[in-house]
Computed example of a mutant assay.
Amino acid sequence: MTTLSKFRYLKLSPVGAIIALGLSAIPFNALAGERPQVPADVFDLSHWNITVPIDKDRDGKSDTISVKKLKKYSHPDFFYLDEQNRMVFATPNKAATTKNSSNTRSELRHMLRGKNTRIKTHGAGNNFAVRARKDSDKFGSVGGRLDATLQVDHVARRAENPDVKAAFSAVVGQIHAVKYDNTASGFGYGNEPLKIFYKKFPGHETGSVFWTYERNLPKDDPNRTDIAYPVWGNLWTNKTDPKEAGIALGEPFS
Rank of each mutant, 00 (worst) to 15 (best):
L23P: 07
L23A: 14
L23M: 03
S24R: 14
A25L: 11
A25H: 11
A25Q: 01
A25R: 05
A25N: 09
A25V: 08
A25G: 14
I26L: 12
I26M: 10
I26H: 15
P27K: 01
P27S: 04
P27R: 01
F28W: 05
F28G: 05
F28L: 00
F28V: 00
F28P: 00
F28T: 01
N29C: 00
N29V: 00
A30E: 13
A30P: 15
L31N: 02
L31T: 11
L31Q: 11
A32Y: 15
A32M: 08
A32S: 11
A32W: 10
A32H: 13
G33S: 13
G33H: 13
G33T: 11
G33F: 12
E34D: 06
R35M: 08
R35H: 04
P36S: 06
V38L: 02
V38F: 01
P39A: 06
P39N: 03
P39T: 09
P39E: 05
A40T: 04
A40C: 01
A40D: 05
A40N: 07
D41R: 07
D41L: 02
D41S: 02
D41N: 05
V42Y: 01
V42T: 07
V42Q: 00
F43Y: 10
D44A: 07
D44W: 07
L45Q: 04
L45F: 13
W48L: 08
N49C: 12
N49F: 00
N49Q: 02
I50M: 03
I50Q: 03
I50P: 11
I50L: 02
T51H: 09
T51N: 03
V52A: 03
V52K: 01
V52N: 02
V52D: 05
V52E: 15
V52L: 12
P53H: 10
P53D: 09
P53V: 07
P53I: 09
P53K: 06
D55I: 06
D55S: 04
D55F: 08
K56Q: 15
K56M: 11
K56G: 14
D57R: 05
R58S: 13
R58N: 15
D59Q: 03
D59N: 11
G60Y: 12
G60Q: 07
G60T: 05
K61D: 04
K61I: 12
K61W: 10
K61F: 09
K61H: 15
K61Y: 14
S62P: 07
S62R: 08
S62W: 04
S62V: 03
D63E: 12
T64Q: 12
T64E: 15
T64I: 13
I65C: 07
I65K: 06
I65E: 07
I65A: 01
S66H: 01
S66I: 08
S66M: 03
K68C: 09
K68G: 04
K69V: 05
K69Q: 14
K69P: 10
L70T: 09
K71D: 13
K71F: 14
K71C: 09
K72S: 08
K72E: 04
K72A: 08
K72N: 07
Y73F: 14
Y73M: 00
S74P: 01
H75Y: 04
H75G: 04
P76G: 01
P76E: 06
P76H: 13
D77G: 05
D77Y: 15
D77Q: 15
